[in-house]
Design a protein around this nucleic acid. Structure first.
Lengths: 105, 105
DNA sequence: AGGATATATAACCAAGCGAGTATATGCCTG
DNA sequence: CAGGCATATACTCGCTTGGTTATATATCCT
């Protein structure tokens, strides 16, 4: 049961998601575009599927993978309290580090 | 050069971020709250610091860690095109699974 | 200075992961 | 049903990672 986070931790998998964002693609297409080997690509797709980030439909011998954007809602939800934080105080820390009141300049 | 993604991949580190979201905390406090060992906590904090997600200030013998929410902007930016995707088509895939044309019904 | 407190670092271990090779499975065509 | 194409799985290997124990570093207090 691979979490969404661990699925997204790998850069290649994020690349694949980016490619699927444009349109659904067959495995072979992803192999070409990513430069990964075919088994490597399949393995990454397996992880993404396990995390609910992609779905696959079978078209003859090919398997066409599609993005399932709703799988990312979890991340978005997790992020929201932090988003609130960095909106309110636009990083009080940094504002404090280079303390230079706007009056100066 | 640990990326933000890899820093967030670990559940314990996300827990720590959650605790720092409430308020800045010293290491010992985090050790208690997380149940991790002290060196383990320090190690996680090191990763978080390397990713720019937390900052530390020294207060006597203690080191107080603060959240740096702006470090999460990267994630938020990455997410935005996908957010657009799941807003537009509320998962066309799933809508397709229970295909029931709007004309029917 | 000396001891206590608080945290970081070093060294080690076990488990997990990503990459690669080889092979199995599934489907289609003649 | 044979052969080929497309993809998944099995297996192995080297590296990274998280956890743990032990030790070093830094600051405070008396």
């Amino acid at each position: 049961m691979p979490s969404t986070w661990t699925a997204l931790a790998d850069a290649h998998r994020r690349t694949i998601l980016g490619l699927l964002l444009e349109r659904p693609r067959a495995v072979g297409e992803l192999v070409e575009l990513t430069g990964l080997t075919q088994p490597g690509t399949s393995k990454h797709l397996r992880v993404l599927r396990g995390a609910g980030l992609v779905t696959a439909r079978t078209a003859a011998q090919k398997r066409v993978y599609s993005l399932r954007p709703s799988g990312l809602v979890e991340i978005d939800d997790w992020l929201s309290p932090y988003r609130r934080a960095w909106n309110q105080r636009l990083d009080a820390l940094e504002r404090h580090l280079d303390r230079k009141p706007t009056e100066e300049e």
